[in-house]
Amino acid sequence: MNSCLKEELYKGFRIQLNLCGPKTPWTSAQEQTGGCGRVRLARDVRRSSEASPAPSLSTEEQRALERKLKKERKKEEKRRLQEAGSCPARKTPAPRIPTDPTPPSSGATLALDYLCGWAQKRQDWKFQKTRQTWLLVHMYNPDKVPDEHFPTLLAYLEGLKGQARELTVQKAEAQMQALGEGATDGQDPLLLGQAHRLRQVLQLLS
Rank of each mutant, 00 (worst) to 15 (best):
M1L: 08
N2T: 10
C4Q: 07
L5A: 06
K6G: 02
K6W: 02
E7K: 08
R14W: 01
L19H: 12
P22L: 06
T24C: 03
P25I: 05
P25S: 09
S28T: 10
T33W: 09
T33D: 04
G34R: 04
G35F: 03
C36G: 03
R40A: 04
D44Q: 10
V45T: 11
V45A: 10
S48F: 03
E50C: 02
S52N: 13
A54E: 07
P55G: 02
S56G: 03
S56H: 02
L57S: 07
E60T: 13
Q62L: 14
K68G: 11
K68N: 08
K68V: 02
K74R: 14
K75S: 08
K75T: 12
E76C: 06
E76S: 12
E77T: 07
K78A: 10
R80M: 12
S86C: 06
P88Y: 05
P88S: 06
R90T: 02
K91H: 08
K91G: 04
A94S: 12
A94Q: 07
R96F: 01
P98W: 04
T99C: 05
S105L: 01
S105N: 00
S106M: 02
A108K: 05
A111W: 00
A111V: 00
D113R: 11
C116T: 04
W118D: 01
A119W: 00
A119S: 15
Q120P: 00
W125S: 11
R131A: 15
T133A: 15
L135Y: 10
L136P: 10
P142K: 10
V145Y: 00
E148Q: 10
E148C: 08
F150T: 03
P151T: 09
G159W: 05
G162N: 01
G162H: 01
Q163F: 08
Q163Y: 07
L167N: 09
K171L: 04
A174K: 14
A178Q: 13
G180N: 11
T184K: 14
D185T: 11
L192M: 13
G193W: 01
Q194R: 15
H196S: 14
H196Q: 15
L198K: 14
L202I: 15
L205F: 02
S206C: 08
S206W: 05
